[in-house]
């Protein structure tokens, strides 16, 4: 029994390793690509970030970002890549949860679901604020 569990644990390590690696590579490539478009279109403009004014309206919502990607706007593509990057560790928790389900480790299924719940609550709190 003990051996079976340790075997599954190493499986989980490999899967988690891949999730993190692919997540980072894909999201950073998208950010980089969006960055080139952004610089091409806005490179000569003058920057001023002295005052906090939030982010441009068109990337404020997920719908807006999607529309921005279709219309090839650099900032929307960058923001999409950043959202994927933020999702990467969350995805890792989801994969660990699946791993614990496969191992039938009830305690850790509960613990990883609790972590997901906290992140979800955090997401909602940002929405309200």
């Amino acid at each position: 029994m003990a051996q079976k569990i340790s075997f599954k644990d190493t499986d989980m390590q490999v899967v988690i390793g891949w999730v993190l690696r692919i997540g980072v590579i894909v999201s950073i490539s998208i950010v980089f690509f969006g960055g080139i478009i952004f610089l091409y279109r806005h490179g000569q403009e003058v920057v001023d970030h002295r005052k906090f004014v939030g982010i441009p309206d068109f990337i404020q919502s997920f719908k807006g970002i999607m529309y921005g990607i279709i219309t090839f706007r650099g900032q929307a593509i960058i923001q999409f890549g950043i959202i994927l990057l933020i999702a990467t560790p969350i995805l890792r928790v989801i994969f660990s949860t699946i791993g614990f389900v496969l191992e039938k480790d009830k305690l850790y299924i509960f613990i990883s679901l609790l972590v997901l719940l906290i992140i979800f609550a955090s997401m909602l709190s940002g929405h309200a604020g």
């Binding site: 969006g34 952004f38 806005h42 920057v47 970030h49 004014v53 939030g54 982010i55 990337i59 404020q60 650099g74 900032q75 929307a76 960058i78 923001q79 950043i82 959202i83 933020i86 999702a87 990467t88 560790p89 969350i90 906290i118 992140i119 955090s122 997401m123 709190s125 940002g126 929405h127 604020g129």
Partner: peptide, 17 residues
């Protein structure tokens, strides 16, 4: 970091540029 980034993302702290 992701747990707080989801909040900051919606508040406009994360500027793409």
């Amino acid at each position: 970091a992701a747990a707080s980034a989801v909040v900051y993302l919606q508040r406009g702290y994360i500027d793409p540029g």
